[in-house]
Amino acid sequence: MRIAVFGSTGRTGIPLCEQALERGHEVVAHTRSPEKLTFDESREGVTIVEGDAYTGEGVDKAVAGADAVVSVLGQSDASPNDLLTVAGDHILEAMAEHDVIRFVTLVGAGVREEGESVSLGGKAMGALLKLLARDVLEDSADHARRVRESDREWTILRVPRLGEGDPSGDYRIGDLQLGFEAVDRADVATCILDRLEKGDYVGAMPKVGDA
């Protein structure tokens, strides 16, 4: 499978790309900073596309010829407030142009589905996000809404606090009651690749938690 990855040099993107290559997939790594990748174009199965998903630079080139697209873009202090929404629009437009159907994207567990049950810990986390990171939460929710309205075969994975350095190689997925716990980024990467290979959770917004 040829997988276009947006956010490939991020802390989730790097293990995602590495695991994809280990599983025998081709990776198209879209990035503003190719020097941050842990591999270069000489590695078999790797294509690097330099660009900026927010402006749309390089998005079309990265998506063309892909079998699936993954976005693990994340907000930082220097990011535009609408990073996920605007970049997601560019990605979806390129997917429609090149008839690429499968899309998996990552948002925080604070993004809710209408009518879903939320644990006390989840409610507390949601309240904290609204207080401290309202722009990030609204951007994630807008991105998820636009993906849901698209005609792609999408999966929106919702994750709690992301940790790193202690992957178990396993995870939980589904209608989970999540609070302040963390899930390792490498395990999230495993979950993403499992969704692409199994073709499940299409048109769904499952939560991902630590095993």
Score class of each variant (00 low, 15 high):
117 S>M: 09
196 L>W: 02
15 P>K: 01
167 P>N: 01
76 S>R: 13
174 G>C: 11
37 L>P: 01
39 F>D: 03
94 A>V: 09
204 A>H: 12
207 K>I: 13
166 D>K: 11
23 R>V: 13
69 V>Y: 04
5 V>D: 01
149 E>W: 06
60 D>W: 10
131 L>R: 14
48 I>L: 03
46 V>C: 07
62 A>C: 05
49 V>T: 10
73 L>F: 08
184 D>W: 00
196 L>P: 08
148 R>T: 14
22 E>R: 15
96 A>K: 14
155 T>F: 07
45 G>L: 10
149 E>A: 13
169 G>S: 05
181 E>V: 09
59 V>F: 07
164 E>Q: 15
88 G>N: 12
35 E>C: 07
21 L>K: 02
122 G>M: 06
195 R>I: 13
167 P>T: 04
182 A>W: 15
159 V>K: 01
134 R>I: 15
89 D>F: 09
131 L>Q: 04
179 G>R: 09
54 Y>C: 06
60 D>Q: 10
123 K>P: 08
163 G>T: 15
20 A>V: 15
95 M>A: 03
152 R>S: 14
169 G>N: 03
169 G>D: 01
86 V>G: 05
98 H>D: 10
78 A>H: 05
13 G>S: 04
144 A>D: 04
144 A>Q: 05
88 G>E: 09
209 G>M: 01
173 I>R: 10
121 G>K: 04
150 S>W: 04
184 D>V: 00
104 V>G: 09
119 S>C: 05
149 E>S: 14
12 T>Q: 02
104 V>S: 08
89 D>C: 07
210 D>T: 11
18 E>C: 06
158 R>C: 07
113 E>S: 12
167 P>Y: 02
140 S>D: 13
11 R>D: 12
170 D>R: 08
185 R>E: 08
87 A>W: 05
16 L>H: 04
40 D>Y: 02
46 V>E: 05
38 T>V: 13
31 T>M: 01
15 P>S: 01
148 R>F: 09
79 S>A: 15
150 S>Q: 04
29 A>S: 04
41 E>T: 15
151 D>M: 09
196 L>F: 09
174 G>E: 09
144 A>L: 03
145 R>D: 15
165 G>R: 04
174 G>D: 08
14 I>H: 02
196 L>K: 02
185 R>W: 05
161 R>S: 14
183 V>C: 00
208 V>P: 00
29 A>I: 09
30 H>Q: 12
154 W>K: 06
154 W>I: 05
159 V>W: 00
106 L>R: 00
16 L>C: 03
143 H>Y: 13
154 W>A: 00
16 L>A: 03
